[in-house]
Design a protein around this nucleic acid. Structure first.
Lengths: 225, 225
DNA sequence: TGCAATTAATTAATCGAATGATTAATTTGT
DNA sequence: ACAAATTAATCATTCGATTAATTAATTGCA
């Protein structure tokens, strides 16, 4: 937890050292097979380094997983925080009409849908959803980080759309049913593909989903289109 | 796959032999920790039998998992098939008005929500959702069994509600967004609890969710309430 | 019915392989 | 030269599976 680790010889951040390689390899392999199903040797092989470096840098397999989760949280934050802050400023500027809030909510949902279905971030999504279904102590890293902030913003937008100043339990419930329709395409991926008769969810399918979700959201929230 | 296994000495079905105990223990432990995270010794201890019986009865850990999945599929079928057949007969009898089909769709969704959130079937749900996110060959057992049948019925009901005779891609998409709002409470369990500020999803919370889902479904499908 | 013979069910002991972790030695960069 | 980074070798454990031995139930036959 508070292990500073060995001092970096090369403090160049853009450097692709063994540490970064291990984190990326861990995200890929753990995201694909799960924490318990992957050995540290498999991760080290993917990273192209010796397995002993996992203990050297992270104190063990657990520590590497924690660092991987932290890296995911940082990446999500780097992408979502600008969107979140833009919407927060928009609200602070008084631009909080039903239409504006609905459009903002759709923007957030689109970002999540893209993340959950794009191949590049698929390993992140797998790890996040595993943590949500069976939380480890690292769940806090994700939820108290970017996820929670995005969720709170969605609840706030939901309240504004419903004409409320302060969110109620109904707003949290509505937000859940909205985000549920986004998360479904990852958490129930195999069943979703079967149901739609798709091979995979590519850009074309993502657009079809997005259109339908926006339509659903408008109907649920009673926003005229 | 085609292993008949040793002949049962006691063919009494209600008997609680080692075989049944192992299947139940496997569902509990694998549902809780995942296939790779659980050892055959842990499963055998829970079942109160020797670990060697797993190979004796099922040919190994894989075989035990397959039997567990099959047992889950059977249990689901035993509960859902009556509901499905009742609705199919209702449709065959010409009772296929918008209101009747909507009510039937809600009934199916209620059954799924109860299964996904009730403690007794929680291990089933965990295994099912793991299979959907990371399918093994046993996914077929679940989807080509009761799950697929329920899903096809939901798509058909969706089509009827929309006034169509034959389901379109739009009906399948709509069914997905509807079932998504049910599955969410299990697949994103931890995040859902955080979002709602709940400790767990008990009967009271389930009723709150159900009311909201019915409301959403009616709005999405354009059914007056 | 009695009672060995036979088969099924269950167990303890053990196997080789793989696991996560550690150690000591070696390479690399400053 | 020194310290950080990296490696090969090895550690004790645990894994899934197998084996041989033991117990329990069923059958065949008198």
């Amino acid at each position: 937890m508070n292990d500073p680790g060995p001092q970096k010889r090369n403090s160049n951040a853009a450097d692709s050292g063994a540490r970064e390689a291990l984190i990326h390899a861990a995200i890929e392999r753990i995201g694909h097979d799960g924490f318990d199903a992957v050995s540290i040797r498999a991760i080290a092989d993917r990273a192209g380094v010796n397995a002993a470096l996992i203990s050297y840098y992270f104190g063990g397999k657990e520590g590497l997983y924690g660092a991987a989760v932290q890296h995911i949280a940082d990446q999500i934050a780097a992408r979502q925080v600008p969107v979140v802050e833009a919407i927060e400023q928009q609200l602070a500027a008084g631009n909080d009409s039903r239409e504006a809030c609905f459009e903002a909510l759709c923007r957030v949902a689109d970002g999540f849908l893209t993340m959950l279905t794009s191949p590049e971030s698929a390993p992140w999504a797998r790890i996040i959803l595993r943590e949500q279904q069976d939380p480890t102590p690292h769940f806090e890293t994700l939820y108290e980080g970017p996820m929670g902030r995005v969720m709170r913003l969605c609840v706030l937008l939901h309240a504004r759309i419903q004409g409320r100043e302060e969110p109620t339990i109904d707003d949290r419930l509505g937000t859940a049913t909205i985000m549920a329709q986004v998360a479904f395409w990852r958490s129930n991926h195999a069943a979703a593909l079967r149901l739609l008769g798709w091979e995979s969810v590519g850009p074309d399918e993502r657009e079809i989903i997005r259109d339908r979700l926006h339509d659903n959201f408008a109907r649920i929230l009673g926003v005229p289109r």
